[in-house]
Write a protein that binds this DNA or RNA. Structure first.
Length: 211
DNA sequence: AGACAGAGAGATCCCGAAGC
DNA sequence: GCTTCGGGATCTCTCTGTCT
């Protein structure tokens, strides 16, 4: 697990090679392991990177996770698996490039900083517009133009992602999680969570447990 | 008790158009 | 580039009832 964490921490565009070197160092021992064991190790790395990026960068890279789960499943030799490992690290690293290009506009850059910091405190569009000294209607259209999301969509995505993280932790009720993520009530949380993930919170938790 | 879903009313957001 | 306005769309809140 410690090694996975090292890889995740280095999985950035500027030090992608370090991450790949760490993985190579780990996989040196894999020559003695069966193909299935190495595949299992790769699956674990994929899931670890997915969870790490979700929690650390608030990036839901389900598409990358699912794509590589399939690739790993279909591979039949260890050398191909090594290539896939490098591609895997590269794919997660490159997702951060999107983030850099995402916030070209200085106003939106500031808006995102405020939202990321205050999204769980009941922040609304009007508050945000006041902080940025803009009209809410203009901010609304600018935000959509620059990010592709409406303000509400982005806010709910952040809240939902935080909820996903909290759902992984045991002994937390939906009531607790809903308030912790900035939802006004548990029914509202359940409804929004289902809208953004396609699953209710309990279904989501069960799907993780069954993996 | 906790989780979930539906309904209705009110609040807020989004978007296009017009104008500065 | 930015604001204002108005109307429709969407979201939020709260209550209620059912299920596990």
């Amino acid at each position: 697990m410690t090694n996975y964490l090292k890889i995740a921490e280095k999985a950035k565009p500027e030090c992608i090679n370090c991450a790949q070197e760490i993985f190579e160092a780990i996989s040196k021992n894999s020559t003695t392991k069966s193909l299935d064991k190495v595949k299992k190790q790769m699956d674990n790395l994929n899931t670890f990177l997915y969870t790490y990026f979700l929690i650390t960068y608030n990036k839901d890279l389900t598409n990358i996770h699912d794509d590589f789960t399939l690739k790993i499943k279909n591979v039949h030799d260890k050398s191909s698996l090594k290539n896939i490992a490098n591609q895997l690290i590269e794919a997660y690293s490159n997702s951060l490039l999107d983030e850099m290009e995402f916030s070209r506009n200085e106003i939106i850059d500031n808006a995102l900083k405020i939202i990321n910091k205050e999204y769980a405190t009941g922040l609304n569009l009007e508050d945000l517009a006041k902080k940025l000294h803009l009209s809410k209607n203009y901010l609304c259209s600018l935000f959509k133009e620059e990010t592709g999301f409406t303000f509400c969509q982005y806010l709910n995505t952040l809240k939902t992602n935080k909820a996903k993280k909290l759902l992984l932790e045991d002994k937390k009720t939906l009531e607790y999680i809903s308030y912790e993520c900035g939802f006004s009530s548990q029914p509202h949380f359940t409804m929004t969570f289902k809208k953004y993930t396609g699953k209710t919170p309990r279904e989501y938790k069960m799907s993780l447990v069954s993996q």
